[in-house]
């Protein structure tokens, strides 16, 4: 089980980073999403894996619980990564609409102020 999760994290990371290294905005955003899955799973897994032990207290029986703290951290991380994706997406979209180009790297003319500047 641990092996499955670890390999999934590794593959998500590799895929995310490969896409982040592309040169157009959209794949970069998709790559960022893949990477956030990987990071969220990673953080979650630092609490170690457990089956059928949700951190919901049982008043009637002594049962085991999984680690709640990474879950709380990952919960906010998921919501924040939505916010981040949305901001990056809007920046990418506005840049494309303004310049009719969705490359992420500056060309030489951009570096010198760009034609629009």
């Amino acid at each position: 089980m641990e092996l499955l999760l670890a390999s999934a994290v590794g593959i998500l990371t590799a895929g995310g980073i490969y896409l982040i290294l592309r040169q157009r905005t959209f794949p970069v955003i998709i790559g960022l999403s893949l990477l956030s899955y990987a990071v969220n799973l990673f953080l979650f897994a630092t609490g170690r894996l457990a089956l059928n032990q949700p951190p919901i207290l049982n008043k009637y029986a002594e049962v085991g619980y999984t680690d709640p703290l990474p879950q709380a951290l990952v919960l906010t991380a998921i919501v924040i990564s939505f916010g981040m994706t949305a901001v990056v997406l809007m920046m990418a979209l506005s840049a494309y609409l303004a310049s009719k180009d969705d490359r992420i790297d500056m060309t030489d003319s951009d570096a010198q102020g760009g034609e629009d500047a």
Partner: peptide, 24 residues
């Protein structure tokens, strides 16, 4: 890019595997 991303993936996967198979 493949080399970089595969190395990073191996690192992340290996690290979390090592963590999950050890106690706190």
């Amino acid at each position: 890019d493949i080399a970089i991303s595969v190395t990073a993936g191996l690192g992340m996967g290996g690290l979390i595997y090592a963590m999950m198979t050890r106690d706190f």
